[in-house]
Design a protein around this nucleic acid. Structure first.
Lengths: 213, 213
DNA sequence: CTGGATCCCTCACGATACTG
DNA sequence: CAGTATCGTGAGGGATCCAG
C-alpha cells in the first residue's frame, strides 16, 4: 500500500486520495472552465510551484481524471482537459465553493481574484429556477477581469472576455458581493457607486435574482 | 497572511483552507454520524497520530465547524460535535464519497472498513425516491461491523449496532458491493452465498432498490 | 482509563534554478 | 513554452509520556 494512504476502504477516502492533496481541487476548478496549457494553469495559480503543478497533473492523469492531449501541428502544444470522470467533480466543486464563500468577507492583502475563480463563482451562484426560459447576457468587469454570462433559454454559459452585444455591462469591484448576497439592493449599489452600468440598467435586478449567494 | 494560504479570494479556496488538509474531511465524516469523544475518533481513524487529530479538532473548532462540549458530571468527558455550519458539509461529503466509490474495487491488504464509513456509505447510497412512503428496517452485518437502517415513512436513519426487530437481517462481506451496484442480482447473491439472510428474505430486492450505487 | 502534549524523524511540499 | 533538477523547510507520522 502507498505510504501516505489512509488505510480505509471507503469512497470518501478514495476520493481524498485522488483529489485531496494540496492544490489538486483548485487545478480541477480551473480545468472545469476549459482545457488549458501548463502555462495557462500557472497563470491562474500564481503561487503554485511548477514542480507541484507538474506532479499534480501527473497524478490526475494517472487517476483518469485529467487527459493530456497534444494539439495537432503546427502548434504541437499540450493541453490538459478533464475526462468524463473528472468533469463529474463539477457539482462538488461548486458546492464546496458555495460553502466556503459564506465566510468570504474582504479580500486579504495578498489575496487575488482570478478569471477562473470568478467564472466558477458565477456558475456556482446561478439559480436555474430563476432563469427558466430567460434570454439575456451580461458582461462583468472586475478590475482587470472581464467575463461574460450568456443565458439562452434558461441555460447558462460563462466565459472569459468581453461580450460586445451584452444586454448589460456591469463594472464593479469587491462590492459585487454585497449586491449578490442581497445585503445591498440594486438601487443602493448604483447609488453608492459600487456598480456602474451601461446598457439596460433595469436588468441589474434580474441579474441579482439570477446570480444569488 | 498565513504561510500556507493559497492566496486567492475564492469560495473554493476558502473551503480548502478550512477542510482541505489531510484527515480533516474524514474526521468530519465520522462526526456527521454523531458527536464523538477524542478516543472514539481515534478508534475510527486507526492511522491518525494523536497530535494530528488534536490539531485538526482545534482548527475545526476555531473555524466554527466543530464545537467542543464538556459533558455534565459525573462523566465530565469531552465530546466534539459539528456545528450547524459543519453539518452543511454532509451533502458534499456524501457526494465525494459516491464519486470516489466508483473506483473502489476490492479492499487493499491493509484497508479496513470502519463503522462510520459504513454508516455514511449507506446514507450516501440511499435513494429517497425509491423509499417514498416506505416503512422497513434492516440490520446489516459485515464481519465485526453491525449497523442498522430504519426507514419510517420514507425517512432514513442509520446507526451503529443491532436492531432486534429488524424486518431483514443481512449478513454479508465484501460481496455486498456487487449486490448494491447491480452487478449481481439479489437471487444470485443469495445463491452464491455472498449474503445470508434472516427475516423476510423477499425484502432483499427492496433493499437493493433503496440503497443503490 | 480518557484526553491529550512532547519529541524526533522523515518525506512531501515549496522556492529557485535550469534544460529540451 | 513546458516542464525537470536540486535542495531546504516544515507538516505529517509514530512512539512515548503526562495530567486529570
Amino acid at each position: 500500500m502507498a505510504k501516505r494512504a489512509y488505510g480505509q476502504f471507503c469512497g470518501l477516502v478514495r476520493a481524498l486520495e485522488l483529489v485531496g492533496e494540496r492544490w489538486t481541487l483548485i487545478i480541477v476548478r480551473d480545468l472545469l472552465v476549459g482545457p488549458k496549457r501548463f502555462s495557462d494553469l500557472l497563470r491562474g495559480l500564481p503561487r503554485i510551484p511548477t514542480n507541484i503543478l507538474s506532479a499534480r497533473l501527473k497524478e490526475l492523469e494517472q487517476a483518469g481524471i485529467v487527459h493530456r492531449r497534444v494539439l495537432p501541428r503546427p502548434s504541437g502544444s499540450v493541453v490538459y482537459e478533464l475526462t468524463q470522470y473528472g468533469n463529474e467533480l463539477e457539482d462538488i466543486v461548486l458546492r464546496l465553493g458555495r460553502w466556503g464563500a459564506r465566510l468570504l468577507t474582504k479580500p486579504g492583502p495578498e489575496e487575488i481574484v482570478t478569471v477562473d475563480s470568478m467564472i466558477m463563482a458565477m456558475r456556482s451562484t446561478f439559480r436555474p429556477k430563476e432563469a427558466r426560459g430567460l434570454d439575456v447576457s451580461y458582461e462583468l468587469r472586475l478590475g482587470e477581469i472581464v467575463i461574460h454570462m450568456s443565458i439562452k433559454n434558461g441555460r447558462l454559459t460563462v466565459a472569459e472576455g468581453a461580450l460586445p452585444d451584452a444586454d448589460l455591462v456591469i463594472k464593479t469591484g469587491p462590492g459585487i458581493k454585497a449586491l449578490m448576497t442581497g445585503e445591498v439592493s440594486p438601487a443602493k449599489a448604483i447609488a453608492n457607486g459600487s456598480v456602474r452600468l451601461s446598457g439596460d440598467s433595469r436588468l441589474l435586478s434580474r441579474f441579482v435574482d439570477t446570480f444569488h449567494i
